[in-house]
Amino acid sequence: MQFSVKVSNYQKNLMLNICDSDLLGKDIIQDKLTMSISKSYYGEKIVGKQEAEELLKKSSIINMVGDQTVSLSIELGIGSENGVKRISGVPFLIVFKM
């Protein structure tokens, strides 16, 4: 299980953009909506499950896309199934920790 991540600081918060590595560089299209899983936004480095878990736990703002990524966040109690949206069947979730 591999994830593509980009970590940055945003207004004194740790922001994590994370996706399933196999989605990197793809466009997800549904009707008139297109979500680009760009390398510039998600592609700083590839990490394994353990590092992905650590990043999910310590980040305050998380943008995530993909079955494995969203499932992992829900398993860790970071995300909720209620907040998951889907574009052409691909789940995405945005989390803001307070």
Score class of each variant (00 low, 15 high):
Glu53Leu: 05
Leu16Val: 09
Asn82Gly: 11
Cys19Tyr: 12
Lys39Arg: 14
Ala52Asn: 09
Leu14Phe: 05
Ile62Arg: 14
Tyr10Lys: 15
Gln11Asn: 04
Asn63Val: 02
Ser71Met: 01
Leu56Gly: 03
Phe92Lys: 11
Leu55Thr: 07
Gly43Ser: 03
Ile87Val: 09
Val5Met: 07
Lys57Pro: 02
Asn13Ile: 06
Arg86Ile: 03
Ala52His: 06
Leu72Thr: 00
Asp27Leu: 05
Ile87Gln: 09
Ile28Cys: 12
Thr69Ile: 03
Ser4Pro: 12
Phe96Gln: 15
Val5Phe: 09
Phe96Pro: 15
Lys58Ala: 03
Tyr42Ile: 04
Val90Tyr: 02
Ile74Gln: 03
Ile37Phe: 02
Ile29Glu: 02
Cys19Asp: 00
Asn63Asp: 07
Gly66Lys: 13
Ser80Met: 02
Lys26Trp: 10
Gly43Phe: 14
Phe96His: 15
Asn17Glu: 09
Met1Ser: 12
Ser59Phe: 04
Ile29Thr: 09
Glu75Thr: 04
Asn82Ile: 08
Lys39Ala: 14
Asn17Gly: 01
Lys57Ala: 02
Ile18Met: 06
Phe3Asn: 06
Val65Glu: 00
Asp31Ile: 05
Glu53Asp: 08
Gly77Tyr: 05
Asp20Asn: 00
Ile46Lys: 03
Gln50Asp: 09
Lys39Glu: 07
Asp31Arg: 14
Ser4His: 15
Ile61Trp: 13
Ser36Trp: 13
Ile28Met: 10
Asn13His: 06
Tyr42Phe: 15
Met35Thr: 04
Gln68Lys: 14
Glu51Asn: 09
Asp67Leu: 01
Leu14Asn: 15
Phe3Ser: 03
Asn9Gly: 03
Thr69Lys: 02
Glu44Gly: 03
Ile94Pro: 12
Val70Met: 03
Lys39Cys: 12
Ile18Glu: 08
Met98Gln: 14
Leu93Arg: 15
Lys85Met: 06
Met35Ile: 14
Lys39Gly: 03
Ala52Asp: 04
Asn17Tyr: 00
Gln68Cys: 12
Arg86Cys: 12
Leu33Cys: 15
Leu23Asp: 08
Ser4Met: 13
Met15Lys: 14
Ile87Ala: 07
Leu56Ile: 12
Asp67Tyr: 02
Glu54Ala: 13
Glu81Thr: 08
Gln11Glu: 00
Ile18Arg: 08
Gln30Asp: 15
Lys85Trp: 10
Ser36Val: 15
Lys12Leu: 05
Lys49Ala: 14
Ser59Cys: 06
Ser40Tyr: 06
Glu54Tyr: 02
Lys32Gln: 14
Val5Gly: 02
Ser36Gln: 10
Ile18Trp: 01
